[in-house]
Amino acid sequence: VSVELPAPSSWKKLFYPNKVGSVKKTEVVFVAPTGEEISNRKQLEQYLKSHPGNPAIAEFDWTTSG
């Protein structure tokens, strides 16, 4: 189950709350306009370098507050 949070234009930000008793931590995933899922800052940096014209990296908020 995921919750969609505010994201930069043409992107989606999905929040996957951890299940009770789960060892997996809460996860935030950005979905690029191409449909590619980005789950960490390093991936995001690589994606933005190879896909010019996207929002600046500073516009991506990895917190769950939206």
Score class of each variant (00 low, 15 high):
1 V>G: 11
1 V>D: 12
1 V>Q: 11
1 V>E: 13
1 V>T: 11
2 S>H: 11
2 S>P: 15
2 S>Y: 15
2 S>F: 15
2 S>D: 06
2 S>I: 14
2 S>W: 14
2 S>V: 15
3 V>G: 06
3 V>K: 08
3 V>T: 08
3 V>M: 09
3 V>I: 14
3 V>Q: 07
4 E>M: 10
4 E>W: 09
4 E>K: 07
4 E>H: 08
4 E>L: 10
4 E>T: 08
5 L>S: 05
5 L>K: 05
5 L>R: 05
5 L>G: 06
5 L>V: 06
5 L>Q: 06
5 L>D: 04
5 L>C: 09
5 L>Y: 09
5 L>F: 09
5 L>N: 05
5 L>W: 07
5 L>H: 06
6 P>R: 09
6 P>V: 07
6 P>G: 07
6 P>I: 07
6 P>K: 08
7 A>M: 05
7 A>D: 03
7 A>P: 14
7 A>R: 03
7 A>Q: 04
8 P>L: 05
8 P>N: 04
8 P>H: 05
8 P>C: 07
8 P>W: 04
8 P>Q: 04
8 P>I: 04
8 P>E: 04
8 P>Y: 04
8 P>R: 04
8 P>D: 04
9 S>I: 12
9 S>A: 14
9 S>L: 13
9 S>C: 15
9 S>T: 13
9 S>H: 14
9 S>K: 15
9 S>V: 11
10 S>K: 15
10 S>L: 13
10 S>E: 11
10 S>D: 11
11 W>V: 01
11 W>C: 03
11 W>L: 01
11 W>D: 02
11 W>N: 01
11 W>H: 01
11 W>I: 02
12 K>W: 04
12 K>Q: 09
12 K>R: 15
12 K>V: 09
12 K>H: 08
12 K>G: 05
12 K>Y: 06
13 K>S: 02
13 K>F: 03
13 K>Q: 02
13 K>W: 03
14 L>Y: 14
14 L>E: 03
14 L>D: 02
14 L>A: 03
14 L>C: 10
14 L>I: 10
14 L>Q: 04
15 F>Y: 14
15 F>C: 10
15 F>E: 07
15 F>A: 09
16 Y>C: 07
16 Y>H: 06
16 Y>T: 07
16 Y>F: 13
16 Y>E: 03
16 Y>R: 13
16 Y>K: 09
17 P>K: 11
17 P>Y: 15
17 P>E: 11
17 P>Q: 12
17 P>S: 12
17 P>F: 15
17 P>N: 09
18 N>S: 12
18 N>L: 10
18 N>E: 09
18 N>W: 13
18 N>F: 13
19 K>I: 13
19 K>Y: 12
19 K>S: 12
20 V>I: 12
20 V>Q: 11
20 V>E: 12
20 V>D: 13
21 G>I: 07
21 G>F: 04
21 G>R: 04
21 G>Y: 03
21 G>S: 09
21 G>T: 08
21 G>Q: 07
21 G>P: 07
22 S>D: 12
22 S>M: 09
22 S>L: 09
22 S>C: 10
23 V>Y: 11
23 V>F: 12
23 V>T: 14
23 V>P: 13
23 V>I: 13
23 V>L: 14
24 K>D: 15
24 K>E: 14
24 K>L: 14
24 K>N: 15
24 K>Q: 14
24 K>T: 14
24 K>F: 14
25 K>M: 11
25 K>D: 14
25 K>F: 13
26 T>L: 11
26 T>Q: 13
26 T>E: 13
26 T>A: 13
26 T>N: 14
27 E>R: 15
27 E>N: 14
27 E>W: 15
27 E>F: 15
27 E>T: 15
27 E>G: 15
27 E>L: 15
27 E>H: 15
27 E>S: 15
28 V>E: 01
28 V>F: 05
28 V>Y: 04
28 V>G: 01
28 V>H: 01
28 V>I: 13
28 V>R: 01
28 V>K: 01
29 V>Y: 08
29 V>L: 07
29 V>E: 02
29 V>R: 08
29 V>W: 07
29 V>M: 07
29 V>I: 12
29 V>K: 07
30 F>I: 01
30 F>C: 01
30 F>Q: 00
30 F>H: 01
30 F>G: 00
30 F>N: 00
30 F>V: 00
30 F>D: 00
30 F>P: 00
31 V>Q: 05
31 V>A: 03
31 V>W: 06
32 A>N: 01
32 A>H: 00
32 A>E: 00
32 A>S: 11
32 A>D: 00
32 A>P: 03
33 P>T: 02
33 P>C: 02
33 P>G: 01
33 P>K: 01
33 P>H: 02
33 P>L: 02
33 P>Q: 02
33 P>V: 02
34 T>Q: 02
34 T>N: 07
34 T>A: 02
34 T>S: 07
35 G>A: 02
35 G>P: 00
35 G>V: 00
35 G>N: 03
35 G>H: 03
35 G>M: 03
35 G>R: 03
35 G>D: 02
35 G>Y: 02
35 G>K: 03
36 E>W: 02
36 E>G: 02
36 E>F: 04
36 E>P: 01
36 E>Q: 06
36 E>D: 07
36 E>I: 05
36 E>T: 04
37 E>D: 05
37 E>A: 11
37 E>L: 15
37 E>F: 15
37 E>C: 14
37 E>Q: 13
38 I>W: 01
38 I>C: 04
38 I>P: 00
38 I>N: 00
38 I>F: 08
38 I>K: 00
38 I>A: 02
38 I>V: 07
38 I>D: 00
39 S>K: 14
39 S>V: 13
40 N>Q: 05
40 N>A: 04
40 N>V: 03
40 N>P: 00
40 N>K: 04
40 N>S: 13
40 N>W: 03
40 N>I: 03
41 R>P: 14
41 R>K: 12
41 R>F: 13
41 R>A: 10
41 R>Q: 12
42 K>N: 11
42 K>Y: 14
42 K>I: 13
42 K>V: 12
42 K>P: 08
42 K>Q: 12
42 K>A: 13
43 Q>D: 13
43 Q>P: 01
43 Q>W: 05
44 L>G: 00
44 L>R: 00
44 L>P: 00
44 L>E: 00
44 L>S: 00
44 L>K: 00
44 L>A: 00
44 L>C: 02
45 E>D: 08
45 E>V: 11
46 Q>V: 10
46 Q>K: 11
46 Q>E: 13
46 Q>W: 10
46 Q>G: 08
46 Q>S: 10
46 Q>C: 08
47 Y>W: 05
47 Y>F: 05
47 Y>H: 02
47 Y>G: 00
48 L>R: 01
48 L>C: 02
48 L>Y: 02
48 L>I: 06
48 L>S: 01
48 L>N: 01
48 L>H: 01
49 K>R: 12
49 K>F: 13
49 K>S: 11
49 K>E: 11
49 K>H: 10
49 K>Q: 12
50 S>F: 09
50 S>I: 09
50 S>D: 13
50 S>K: 10
50 S>M: 12
51 H>W: 04
51 H>G: 01
51 H>C: 03
51 H>L: 02
51 H>V: 02
51 H>P: 00
51 H>T: 03
51 H>Y: 06
52 P>V: 05
52 P>M: 05
52 P>D: 06
52 P>R: 04
52 P>E: 06
53 G>E: 07
53 G>W: 05
53 G>V: 04
53 G>I: 04
53 G>P: 03
53 G>N: 08
53 G>M: 05
54 N>Y: 04
54 N>L: 04
54 N>T: 07
54 N>E: 09
54 N>A: 07
54 N>M: 09
54 N>S: 12
55 P>N: 04
55 P>E: 03
55 P>F: 05
55 P>V: 06
55 P>T: 04
56 A>P: 15
56 A>T: 11
56 A>R: 08
56 A>N: 14
56 A>K: 09
56 A>V: 08
56 A>I: 07
56 A>Y: 06
57 I>T: 05
57 I>L: 12
57 I>P: 08
57 I>Q: 06
57 I>R: 04
57 I>N: 04
58 A>V: 10
58 A>W: 15
58 A>D: 14
58 A>I: 09
58 A>H: 14
58 A>P: 04
58 A>M: 09
59 E>W: 06
59 E>G: 04
59 E>V: 06
59 E>N: 06
59 E>S: 07
59 E>I: 05
59 E>Q: 08
60 F>S: 01
60 F>Y: 03
60 F>V: 02
60 F>L: 01
60 F>K: 03
60 F>P: 01
60 F>T: 01
61 D>Y: 05
61 D>L: 06
61 D>E: 07
61 D>I: 08
61 D>W: 04
61 D>S: 08
61 D>R: 06
61 D>V: 07
62 W>V: 02
62 W>S: 01
62 W>E: 01
62 W>K: 01
62 W>F: 08
62 W>I: 02
63 T>L: 05
63 T>P: 03
63 T>H: 08
63 T>S: 14
63 T>M: 07
64 T>H: 12
64 T>R: 10
64 T>N: 09
64 T>A: 13
64 T>K: 07
64 T>L: 12
65 S>W: 09
65 S>F: 10
65 S>N: 13
65 S>A: 12
65 S>L: 10
65 S>I: 10
65 S>K: 11
66 G>L: 12
66 G>K: 10
66 G>A: 12
66 G>P: 12
66 G>H: 10
66 G>C: 13
